[in-house]
């Protein structure tokens, strides 16, 4: 371990430590050097846990390798991995990203008993009839009548929204929230959207215009890139 160039560089920032890992060395060598470095470190008592950001450069780590690194770094209970930062992503991951952030345009009528299920955002040009159902992991936009059930953010995205030209749904569902139509016969609403209101802790229906204020990051791709 007397190489002139170090494989691991550690920098302190105000947010904790940043670990720069050389992307030309083998993973095993890095693990060795890292455990050496860590063994030099003798924590004082009651020192807070330091978050560590790992910069991987052009290296790709699979889940097993990430786990190994994680175990090593947090072994002594004084570091915790805050994030991995790599310039490369796996093709599958990228494709999933793409899928999740794309708006899919579908032109049909979702009739009673039919279910439309997609990953990402959905733009439906057509109606959802009573008894029909649309489910997406992202947002739902309907150019038409929403009379059935719409479930946005099905994987738990509470920021997802449901918007429709005309809405008189059986139910609106966003992530784990459900709201249903009132028992009395009501008129539907035009050009409105349903979203979760954090203060009231329920789904509210509001004018489409509030989206620009409450969901600024609705433009899919960037939001998801940043959130991972």
């Amino acid at each position: 371990m007397l190489d002139s160039k170090q494989m691991i560089t550690i920098k302190g920032t105000k947010d904790g430590l940043t670990l720069f890992i050389d992307d030309h060395s083998s993973f095993e060598a890095i693990l060795d050097e890292l455990s050496d470095k860590l063994s030099e470190y003798k924590p004082k008592k009651d020192e807070p846990v330091v978050p560590v950001t790992v910069k991987l450069g052009d290296r790709y780590l699979n889940d097993r390798q990430k786990k190994q690194l994680n175990e090593l770094i947090s072994a002594k209970n004084c570091f915790t991995i805050h994030a991995f930062d790599s310039n490369v992503v796996h093709r599958d991951e990228a494709l999933t990203w793409k899928e999740e952030s794309e708006i899919r345009v579908v032109n049909r009528i979702v009739r009673s008993g039919q279910v439309l299920e997609y990953v990402g955002d959905l733009l439906l040009v057509g109606d959802v009839n009573p008894g029909g159902k649309v489910i997406t992991t992202g947002n739902i936009f309907i150019m038409g009548n929403l009379l059935g059930i719409a479930h946005a953010g099905v994987n738990g995205d509470r920021d997802a929204v449901i918007a429709a030209s005309y809405m008189k749904p059986n139910q609106l569902r966003i992530a784990d929230y459900i709201s249903r139509a009132p028992d009395y016969d009501s008129e539907g609403v035009y050009m409105e959207c349903g979203l979760i209101d954090k203060e009231q802790d329920k789904i509210v229906i509001d004018r489409l215009q509030v989206l620009s204020r409450k969901r600024k990051d609705i433009s899919g791709f960037e939001r998801r890139m940043l959130n991972g």
Binding site: R111, S112, G113, Q114, N129, P130, G131, G132
Partner: peptide
């Protein structure tokens, strides 16, 4: 009408 809608869906 609901049932007719279901039928139209099945006929698709």
């Amino acid at each position: 009408v609901r049932d007719a809608d279901r039928i139209v869906g099945l006929l698709e």
